[in-house]
Amino acid sequence: MLILGIETATQQVSVAIGGHEGVLSVFELSRGRRHAETLAPAIEFVCRQAGIEMTEFGVVAVDIGPGLFTGMRVGLSAGKAIAQALRVPMIGISSLDLLAFPLRHADRTVAAVIDARKGELFYAFYRTVPGGMQRITDARVGSIDDLVGDLMARGQTIVCVGDGALRYRDEISSGFRCDFAEQFLSHPSAAPLVQLAHAKALREEWVNPWEIQPMYLRAPDAQINWSTRAGGAQ
């Protein structure tokens, strides 16, 4: 079964094709043109180079966030349209899971940290289990202080990974001693996406395109302002 993987939750755009043999083709771009301009040509490119027709895909896998809302929706909207047109199911995987997965051989607790902008971070903790990584906390949104507090509460040597960890490296290490993953692992990639999706596809853990839900973790600003105002008026 061939899987098309689409990853646009951070500033990187990544597309991969996976199958039983593993990752067959990958495209990755982390600077230059933006998601919407890059994604469709990237899908066309990976297919053509791998000699695969769009109609051969049996599953469409997407990163469902958390991440940058607009970028995330570019990938989700494209993925949903492809899956609907091909009448195939989808598999959604969290960006934080994708960051943690390449560190599965580190045998350490991993903190996957994505820059949520506005001084906030999306993060979750993982531990190594046979064959992969297991998330041991819910994905949450918080300040740098929240993250440092949660790191200290774990009280063990932790590896931090992600563009949020990279951006706030100094702030994190001044509050807590921890290690940082290699910089090239800082963005979720479509390669682990198709690998993780393949395992789920074998177990038929998929959803219909209209059921897939992005993980925003944050209400729209207007709604936050509105509930604050409504609360103040009572």
Binding site: T55, F69, V74, A78, I82
Partner: peptide, 16 residues
């Protein structure tokens, strides 16, 4: 942000 949802879906459909 609203435009990008449509544009991404439209281009994806044109590929499929």
């Amino acid at each position: 942000g609203a435009l990008l949802v449509g544009v991404s879906a439209a281009k994806a459909l044109s590929l499929v």
